[in-house]
Simulated scan of single mutants.
Amino acid sequence: MEKPYWEDKEYSFFSHKKCEFFPCHKGADPEDFNCLFCYCPLYALGDRCGGNFRYTDSGLKDCTNCQLPHKRKNYGYVTGKYQELAELMKKMRADQQ
């Protein structure tokens, strides 16, 4: 099976082990923890992000138990959602006009 184009590339994985919060998710594997998406770009997708989240009583999305963007193997999944994010932003912009 052929590997994805991004696999084993430096730009697809960054682990900031000197960060004061590393790893920022409890129970995460420090050797496989990708800090590239420190602030998850999929947050805006709400329940379509694919991650392990919950909504708080006040309606905020709580991603404390989600490691989806932080696993090395999920780089392609996250970047694969960019078109969906672009469409969401386009719709939001149209709704504001």
Score class of each variant (00 low, 15 high):
2 E>M: 07
81 K>D: 03
22 F>S: 10
79 T>I: 15
61 K>W: 01
78 V>P: 10
76 G>E: 13
40 C>K: 06
31 E>K: 03
95 D>A: 15
32 D>E: 08
12 S>K: 03
51 G>T: 10
97 Q>D: 15
70 H>C: 10
1 M>Q: 09
6 W>C: 12
24 C>V: 04
33 F>S: 06
97 Q>H: 06
87 E>Q: 14
42 L>W: 02
89 M>E: 15
66 C>F: 07
73 K>L: 13
72 R>C: 04
3 K>R: 14
67 Q>N: 12
31 E>M: 03
20 E>S: 15
28 A>Y: 03
36 L>N: 04
5 Y>P: 10
29 D>F: 00
35 C>K: 01
14 F>T: 09
11 Y>C: 08
3 K>T: 11
40 C>W: 03
15 S>I: 01
57 D>V: 02
79 T>Q: 09
93 R>P: 00
13 F>M: 09
34 N>M: 00
33 F>R: 01
86 A>V: 09
83 Q>W: 05
97 Q>V: 11
24 C>G: 09
20 E>L: 06
86 A>T: 10
82 Y>S: 11
93 R>V: 11
46 G>Y: 02
65 N>E: 15
69 P>E: 05
60 L>F: 14
59 G>T: 13
72 R>K: 15
92 M>Q: 15
60 L>Y: 14
26 K>D: 13
67 Q>Y: 00
47 D>R: 04
47 D>E: 14
26 K>C: 05
65 N>S: 15
5 Y>E: 12
24 C>W: 02
8 D>F: 12
52 N>K: 12
12 S>L: 03
58 S>W: 02
70 H>D: 10
47 D>Q: 04
23 P>K: 07
51 G>S: 07
37 F>P: 01
31 E>Q: 08
15 S>G: 11
32 D>T: 05
20 E>H: 04
85 L>G: 09
15 S>P: 01
